[in-house]
Each structure stands twice: as C-alpha cells, then as structure tokens.
C-alpha cells in the first residue's frame, strides 16, 4: 500500500517539484498551500504517513502547523519533516522543539529526499 505523504508549501513550484519526485517513487501525495488549508485537510480526515511542511507560509506557518497537528488525535507520533533552507538553522531547531522529526534542506534533490523519507518512515 502506497504511503501517503502530505506536502505543505505555499510555492506551487516547490509543490510540483517535490510532488513529482515523490510520485515517481511510488508515494501518494496530498498537498496544501498553507497551514490553515493543511489543518483543514487533516481535520477532514486525511491520514498521511508523513507530513512535509514548509516553515514560512502565509496564514499559518509550518511551526504552528506542527504544534496544531500534534494536538490532533492520531498525529501524536506522526513523522513530520520541515522544509527549510540552509540559512535557517534556528528554524530547524524551532521545528524540532515544536515536534518535527527532522528537516529537509531546500532545494531538495530527489535522492536526498527519498533517503530521508526512508529514514523516518519505517516500511517506506
């Protein structure tokens, strides 16, 4: 059964790029453009195996999304990765504090992305 990865990023380009890579690797991908829309999907019953979220987004950023998602039933232990750039060390730590499993550094290349997913997602 294909693992579901929930991708949250306000940039359509980034969504397209990462989504393509993931779909090519056989994952099923759901997307949302910001934290608010992501929460809407999660509360509407989306059950991803992994969330990958951008930090800097309008309406609701990644950090808040992580905190909110962790508070939802069924998402306590969900692996969550943040999408950051190499200059955002402090945001990564902030993300970890908020409950992220780890981070991906933009631009995420295919091989690296898939490697990290395999590392945090048993059975992926």
């Amino acid at each position: 059964m294909a693992k579901i990865i929930f991708l949250v990023d306000d940039s359509a380009t980034m969504l397209m790029s990462v989504k393509n890579t993931l779909e090519m690797a056989g994952y099923k991908v759901e997307t949302a453009e910001d934290g608010v829309k992501a929460m809407a999907k999660l509360t509407a019953g989306l059950k991803p195996d992994l969330i990958i979220t951008d930090i800097n987004m309008p309406n609701m950023g990644g950090i808040e999304l992580i905190k909110k998602a962790r508070a939802l039933p069924g998402f306590r232990f969900l692996p969550i990765l943040t999408l950051t750039t190499e200059s955002q060390q402090s945001r990564r730590d902030e993300g970890k504090q908020a409950g992220a499993t780890g981070w991906l550094v933009k631009p995420v290349g295919g091989a690296d992305l898939l490697k990290v997913i395999k590392q945090v997602l048993p059975g992926a």
Partner: peptide, 13 residues
C-alpha cells in the same frame, strides 16, 4: 522576506 525567501528556494531547484 517570505517572497524573496521562497523565490530563492525555488530557484535552487
């Protein structure tokens, strides 16, 4: 900042 940041991130692709 967010605009510039995202733009830069995308260009890195």
């Amino acid at each position: 900042f967010r605009f510039v940041h995202t733009l830069k991130g995308n260009s890195g692709l």
